[in-house]
Design a binder for these strands. Structure first.
Lengths: 208, 208
DNA sequence: CAAAATATTGACCATTTGGTCAGGATCAGG
DNA sequence: CCTGATCCTGACCAAATGGTCAATATTTTG
């Protein structure tokens, strides 16, 4: 069942890499069904049959892409630790997620496309690995709340809000840029805004 | 150039409506290229040639859908008025947008799909009508800030945040539900969370 | 450097899909 | 109830697309 992890040749590594990079570009811009193997091949600088020599099918490319990016994507949340000032931790998480939207917008859009269309391929991960991770971090946040270190907010929705607010700038980038016009740096402005927003939201309320 | 606005027959109205409803369902779930005319036809209970009797092409259906929904979509923002308490106005806008995500998730996903993939068909609207509307409402919000009625926040990003936070619950619904599990009412919880978030964010800061 | 392993491709195939069309069914109005 | 307009469909088409394969080229290795 397990594939032979036989050492990949130089050529193999290079071409697989080129295909995945090209596929990320195409899938994130046009969605799965909007992308043809020919487009991927052309972007990767290969012929179509050659692409299919490295990956069994279009689906296999897509799956490999998603799997390969999961760690990158969940990394920042995993880094949310108990140590340090709680509000700072959360602020840092939001900031890091925003940087990821800025630096990896294609990845963001790939996931968005996927989830938007029902996430059938991701469902097991969403309800499994992701859910457990979120529950764990929610418990951490609940602890902080119980200790009065941050204000009382629903931890799950706090995390959702961070995802929504940061990924928005990647996923809806054309809209953001169209509305702001050319003389803006959306990500820089967003950082200021989000810092303010979460500092206000999380500041412990003394009364009551 | 203008099409004869000749009165539509009963059958015509019924079938056009059925096609648009079916197309919304399909496009929002699978994206434009992931949807076939046959699927739309079947969902609408018509034959493929019959669908093409009412709309010139798949693209025409898509365009008609988007155009027909724009007013619904921009309505809440248009309703943001100078009268009344500023914070209440903004809170009400957020609440209304959240209700729209709950009640019209397909519409939300259709737009998300569109924007995510470059929004070529929407570009003129985003940079035109939408931008003007946003600028106008931003000016209104800036006025409130200048009067010290709400806290000092970037009006554009305030609006972005409302879009992001509310549409997230429709666009990423599968993810939200997967993470929360079955014993939650995402929209009810979100309403509480968003109310709190915006009340805290907008409360005027007295010091300084 | 020759054989074995790996990489590449042109030609090809079956299916799907957007769209057409001629002709038949149905409906509305006189 | 007849007729013209509207509505509907089966059959069809061309292009696009995912995927295959036998043959060829290139690289690696003993």
């Amino acid at each position: 069942m397990q594939e032979q992890p036989r050492r990949q040749s130089r050529i193999q590594r290079k071409n697989r890499e080129a295909i995945l990079t090209a596929a990320l570009r195409e899938f994130s811009a046009r969605g799965f069904s909007g992308t043809t193997i020919d487009q991927i091949a052309e972007t990767a600088g290969l012929s179509k049959p050659n692409v299919l020599y490295y990956f069994q099918s279009k689906d296999a490319i897509h799956t490999a892409l998603l799997r390969g990016m999961l760690d990158l994507w969940l990394g920042p949340l995993r880094d949310l630790r108990a140590e340090g000032d709680p509000a700072d931790q959360i602020l840092a998480y939001a900031r890091r997620k925003l940087e990821m939207s800025r630096d990896y917008p294609q990845e963001s859009r790939l996931f968005a496309n996927e989830v938007l269309q029902g996430a059938e391929r991701l469902a097991p991960i969403l309800g499994g690995e992701l859910r457990e991770l979120v529950d764990q971090k929610s418990a951490l946040i609940s602890g902080w709340i119980a200790q009065g270190k941050i204000a009382q907010v629903d931890p799950h929705h706090l995390l959702f809000s961070i995802w929504a607010l940061t990924q928005h700038y990647a996923d809806f980038e054309v809209q953001v840029r169209a509305v702001l016009g050319p003389d803006h740096d959306p990500y820089a402005e967003a950082q200021v805004f989000l810092d303010l927003l979460y500092r206000r939201l999380l500041k412990p309320q003394l009364r009551e």
